[in-house]
Amino acid sequence: MPPPATEPSLRVLVLGAGSWGTALAAAASRRAPTTLWARDAGQAALMRETGNNARYLPGVALPDALSITADLDAAFEDAHRDGAHVLIILGVPVAGLAATCRDVAARLKRRGATQTHIVWTCKGFESDTARLPHEIAQDALAALYPPGAKGAPPPIGVLSGPSFAREVAQGLPVALTVASHNAATCELTIRALHGAAVRVYAGTDVVGVEVGGALKNVIAVACGVADGLALGTNARAALITRGLAEMARFGVALGAQAETFSGLTGLGDLVLTATGDLSRNRRVGLEIGAGRPLADILASGITAEGVRCARAALARAHRMDVDLPITEAVCAVLFDGVAAETAVSALLAREARYESSTDTAPAGLITPT
């Protein structure tokens, strides 16, 4: 009788040594050989020497098993040894996704790699084009995976969910979602990360996962503003609830599944980002609500994707005739010089309406004006 088949070995390569890339690399290294690539050679050397990422995750010890390098070619060579399945996790922001995907495509095409899967983790809309990450990635990876090619869907997808990098790096519990049209990509991502404190769910709604990840940051800025103005927890609950409706409305218009927004990458990520003390987007809102100018906040080193993508999201929504009142109010405060109090008053002054688009008016009810 032949011996039972064994699964091919798995190697993980994480590109980007920011807080989230480092946290995912730490988690993956507990389950498979993992290499973390840092663009800055000095940072990579310091991380190897000290065993932590002092720039982005100070005080958090990294697993001894994690390999760290600034040599991208060497990282690819190491990951593709022994005929292993390879999962590449792109831990770069939206602004760097296209360039990183092109680098990956060039190297994989030269190697003729056929068992390499790619997932990205960034959240937002591209500032100048208003594209979502999957649209950026598909275009940048077109040389590797031509559009319309027959066969299985490209081995690419998005990894997202309610997660603060510091807690993941510390080994605290987290639940994530990987969405891809390629079942093997989902399976490999689960194999790389699922276990112990990390739980990974799978799905196919790439658009829904990405819209939730992008707009929840904008809504979190709004919640921070309300908290900074001391408007109370009732106001925060209203913003979270109506923000969720805003996310779902926009997502469905873009082709997402409505159910996605009641899951981890919709409601779950929104609640975390709008209420958590580690949320950079909420922190920006708090500072604005306290009267601090946006330029001063950003100059202090706080970076928040909600600020970066709000205008692009609103521009795309306008082109599609989708109403995003909270996003519009956030943009007015961030970029148009509108006082936070004025923007809140404008939201409260909107005419009354039915909460759900499926509601119908009972006979005799006077429509508010």
Rank of each mutant, 00 (worst) to 15 (best):
R319P: 06
V12P: 00
T265G: 04
R81H: 07
I297V: 08
L254S: 02
M47A: 04
R242F: 04
G212C: 09
A137Q: 04
E287H: 12
C122A: 05
A27S: 13
V14I: 08
S180Y: 03
T189Q: 09
L347S: 01
A183T: 09
L298D: 00
G151R: 09
D359G: 08
I366R: 15
T342M: 15
A99H: 11
L229A: 11
D277A: 12
R55G: 01
D321Y: 14
P58Q: 10
E351I: 13
K216T: 00
A175T: 02
A99K: 11
A248Q: 06
S9P: 12
A248M: 08
A290Q: 12
I288D: 09
R30A: 10
V330Y: 07
V252K: 03
Q115P: 09
R48I: 03
G96M: 10
T265L: 09
A343I: 06
L244Y: 11
R319L: 06
V198Y: 13
I297W: 03
G151S: 05
A23I: 07
A222V: 11
P33K: 10
V104P: 11
G151I: 08
L347T: 05
G83A: 00
A332Q: 12
A99F: 10
R111M: 05
S160T: 07
H117C: 02
Q138H: 13
D321T: 10
T303L: 03
A165I: 03
R249I: 04
L10G: 03
T35Y: 12
L176Y: 02
E7S: 10
G276T: 08
V307S: 06
F164Y: 10
S67R: 15
R30L: 14
L66I: 02
V252H: 01
R81K: 14
I88Q: 10
I302S: 02
H181C: 09
I219G: 01
S127R: 15
D323K: 15
T129F: 12
A79N: 00
H85F: 06
S163C: 13
I68K: 08
G255M: 09
L159S: 02
P63L: 14
L298G: 00
P362E: 04
Y354Q: 13
A184N: 07
V284Y: 08
R81A: 05
K216W: 12
P133E: 01
